[in-house]
């Protein structure tokens, strides 16, 4: 059977999910992998729950990941990571920010963390990505890049760091390239 690597990025509209998706797709192109992504635009991305799908491998047909088929969930926000857990394979991984963007009737942040920790998967990385980026780089918008780097350097995502850095240089506007590269290297420090 054709093997693909499937990533769901979850977060809140406006958090930069599409840029992150474009960077991963570009890194796949650099590594000569077939890739398809799916995303939503318009009203659905205006501050509501959003998710993008990225699939890559030798041959990718559908752009959509279905339930129980994701190898990795990247959460830019903790409740949104939790919301999308139904996509995860039993042997999949979760990399999520502990950061919570509050909304009415939102689950308590600690409760959300506890729930993710209760899932019986081996690879879970819950980190304070946004606050680390704010402390060290004085920027919150690159938290997704930091999360991506954790996936790459821990060999969860089968893409090389060099390809991702090359992709950042191509996709990110020039004046933000250095900032993004720094964020990508944060997890190595």
């Amino acid at each position: 059977m054709n093997k693909t690597f499937n990533i769901i990025i979850s977060g809140v509209g406006g958090q930069g999910l599409i840029t992150l998706t474009k960077i991963i797709a570009e890194a796949c192109r650099i590594e000569k992998k077939d890739v398809k992504t799916s995303e939503l635009h318009g009203l659905s991305q205006r501050g509501g729950s959003v998710q993008t799908h990225i699939r890559f491998g030798e041959r990718v047909w559908s752009p959509l990941i279905t339930e129980n088929k994701a190898d990795l969930i990247i959460g830019l926000e903790i409740t949104e990571a939790l919301r999308n857990i139904f996509y995860l394979k039993p042997e999949g991984a979760v990399i999520s920010d502990k950061y919570q963007l509050f909304y009415p009737d939102a689950l308590d942040k600690e409760e959300a963390i506890k729930k993710i920790n209760s899932i019986s998967i081996k690879r879970k990385y819950l980190i304070d990505a946004l606050s680390v980026c704010k402390d060290k780089l004085d920027s919150e918008v690159v938290s997704g890049i930091y999360l991506l780097s954790i996936g790459v350097f821990n060999k969860i995502i089968p893409l090389s760091a060099d390809s991702v850095i090359e992709a950042i240089e191509k996709i990110v506007p020039e004046k933000y390239v250095e900032l993004n590269k720094k964020a990508f290297k944060l997890s190595k420090q």
Partner: peptide, 9 residues
């Protein structure tokens, strides 16, 4: 989880 509705910027 409670639904997160789209909201104004």
């Amino acid at each position: 989880l409670a639904k997160r509705f789209p909201r104004l910027c």
